[in-house]
Design a protein around this nucleic acid. Sequence first.
DNA 1: AAAATATGTCAACATATCTGACCAAAATAT
DNA 2: ATATTTTGGTCAGATATGTTGACATATTTT
Lengths: 147, 147
Amino acid sequence: MKDLLYLKDEQIKDCIQLLLYAYRETFSDPLEILKKNSLGAAHYRALHLVERNEGINVNELLIKLKITKQSLNRVLKELKRLRLIKQVKDKNDTRRKLLYLDQNGRKFYQQVFESQKKRIFNALKHSDSDSVIKFKEVLKKIINGKK
Amino acid sequence: MKDLLYLKDEQIKDCIQLLLYAYRETFSDPLEILKKNSLGAAHYRALHLVERNEGINVNELLIKLKITKQSLNRVLKELKRLRLIKQVKDKNDTRRKLLYLDQNGRKFYQQVFESQKKRIFNALKHSDSDSVIKFKEVLKKIINGKK
DNA sequence: AAAATATGTCAACATATCTGACCAAAATAT
DNA sequence: ATATTTTGGTCAGATATGTTGACATATTTT
């Protein structure tokens, strides 16, 4: 017999609210330092994905971000102007332009990440490793789920 | 000796990314039905908080939403116009206007919630109750944490 | 009576997204 | 070799959500 208390609507609403607040707080931390460099959350999301997927091309990035290319284009334009990322033509298919962090970008990304890291670091530090594993498992199920 | 693998930067970046994706998917589900009623995510956030805190006043709602009163006002104006929420003067302090879901609002909220519920419901259904508890614990630590 | 509080409103602006149309270069298919 | 598709970039205009700052009104507190 499984205890299904946590499938009640109230519990689900609870989860939704926690998810909203956790997201909001986590992504509001780095806004200050971004703003100093006249960048916003959108730039950071792109920067983050490039950092974690060096050599990604524009199309793949588009898919991960789930925004339109027009939106992404403006973001990339500014990141390039500030020399935070660079594009290198793919030798096998020179239509493709692969994205890398520029030297500046690596330094800047690290700064922004540090501002965001504290909150997560402390939350994880005060949790045991089993909790963290389960936390990530549930998040993954939410992401892949729906139907 | 504690295993601190999960405190490495790469793990933290992982968590941040999962949080971003989980939030995005969870809150993109209800956009379609909202749009049909010419409403957006902002209206739903307010509606959700009123549903979970019936009788909340404007100031308290403002604090929970962390937006300016001018922003909230536009949202509330539309929700009132559509008869989704209603305001009732507080008898003890008639400056205060307490917010309640209107009859329409209750029905509409339920519809929107259902569209969002599926994803969370399934994720929780495929997790055990311990995982769900730990999932929520970590989220709470993220929300309250930082320093 | 004066000050503080709760709510509402106006205007101007910032940002991040969208849609739709269009272009060019390069690769692939016929 | 030409036609089509893919990849990336760009323009213009619209929408959603937020911001600041100024101000108005009603009510409560001091």
